[in-house]
Design a protein around this nucleic acid. Structure first.
Lengths: 231, 231
DNA sequence: CCAAAAGTGTTTCTCATACACCCATGC
DNA sequence: GCATGGGTGTATGAGAAACACTTTTGG
């Protein structure tokens, strides 16, 4: 209706998850990169990577762009999390943030740069964040753990082929509890989410493990179809 | 960064669901109200109720407001569906739409007004809609059917107390398939979602049925907590 | 009494869990 | 050989589905 400057700004932020070994016991845990704010409000505090939505880019494009800018990575999985738009969530201005969550491969995440203003944190011990970003991270973690149990996103943390042990390790890291190897195998094989290849992975001081790869992607978001990810 | 007029507009739309008897066979089916567009683009076509986000209202508030404006009802259940923001979804301007979905009580929906520019449609036979609203309705229906199976939103279609037959009728209407009364009873009673009252509903030419009411609301959206609804 | 829906009991099947056990490799 | 993880077999129990059966009302 009003033709003058709209007072509502649109931003896109992304919660980026990767698995990395914990510094304490070496077991794999969930990590995410945060950026330090260099402007008010909340200058100096850690926050989710993101920025204003450009007029000529789609929402998911914007999420992938800021993801690449902060980590130099491309996501294996990218899905919209939620739109946060309460009037009081940013002091002094009205910002609606469309938040995405992404999974990146663990081997690539090792290459990801850190700097004075970009640092990876263990998901269980993120500091108090700017805006409502602490709540957002908590919600994204909840979604990740939830979706892992009825979807096949775990493979997004791994390479093209992987052993069932590696896949199980992903589940254990995300869910933070040990899983029975025998039952896990049956569950996964029975679900048809992965298919065995001809190759084996040798090198451990034990019997070689068969390598698997993703089956054709299964629709999991209904009419919205497949969410973006590696082609 | 730029201080001049932001070219990205924010709107809030709502998919409103109610159950009404089908005109063909009288069985309950899912319905939703649509409004006729009185402006370009897509003038004359049917679209979801909604409008621009006001600077001083929260997202859910905006959804509830447009819901009240078009149907004169208050939602029993209101939850964010998705944010749609592709660059090409509205010709000539850039609009990001935060879409909510709502459930209203069937007895109240009967009172809801219709007019030249507001009409209720059966969910299975909505016409081609303006913008990407056809896709949005399809997705909202998918979410409704999905969520019905692991949540207790069905009671939002009913009054404060209801019989298990009425609750089953809701499930059957939404899922479009008959359910075994005996097993349905056990499932619902075992879930703890409802509690029996002392009252019975008489009047049918058969044994009176016990009335139930909602149990204390269970968290189903994780850290985001309870979604808005009747207090 | 009969029709119809309320409500209970029981059988069967599927699937998750727990755990015993064999297989194949490095050292 | 022996330690280690890969992989198979199997008993048990919980819960879903199918369906027979009893109960209580209106007519």
């Amino acid at each position: 209706m009003a033709a003058h400057a709209a007072p509502v700004h649109v931003a896109v932020s992304t919660v980026i998850f990767a698995l990395r070994p914990s510094p304490v016991d070496g077991r794999m845990t969930v990590w995410l990169p945060l950026v330090r704010r260099i402007r008010d409000p909340f200058v100096g505090m850690w926050a989710l990577p993101g920025g204003p939505l450009e007029p000529d880019e789609d929402l998911a494009e914007s999420a992938a762009r800021t993801l690449a800018e902060t980590t130099l990575l491309t996501p294996q999985y990218l899905e919209q999390l939620y739109a946060f738009g309460n009037t009081d969530r940013s002091p002094g201005e009205r910002v609606v943030s469309i938040v995405y969550w992404a999974l990146v491969r663990s081997d690539e995440a090792d290459i990801a740069v850190e700097s004075e203003n970009v640092r990876w944190f263990e998901a269980d011990s993120v500091p108090e964040l700017a805006f409502d970003h602490s709540l957002i991270v908590e919600y994204a973690l909840w979604r990740l753990r939830n979706k892992l149990e009825y979807s096949h996103i775990a493979s997004a943390f791994l390479g093209d082929t992987f052993t069932l042990s590696e896949l199980r390790e992903v589940h254990e890291a995300v869910l933070q509890k040990p899983l029975d190897p025998a039952n896990f195998r049956r569950q996964i094989e029975g679900s048809g989410q992965v298919v065995p290849t001809e190759q084996l992975r040798t090198g451990g001081r034990h019997r070689p493990a068969r390598l698997y790869r993703y089956a054709a992607t299964v629709e999991t978001n209904g009419p919205l179809g497949r969410t973006e990810g590696a082609s």
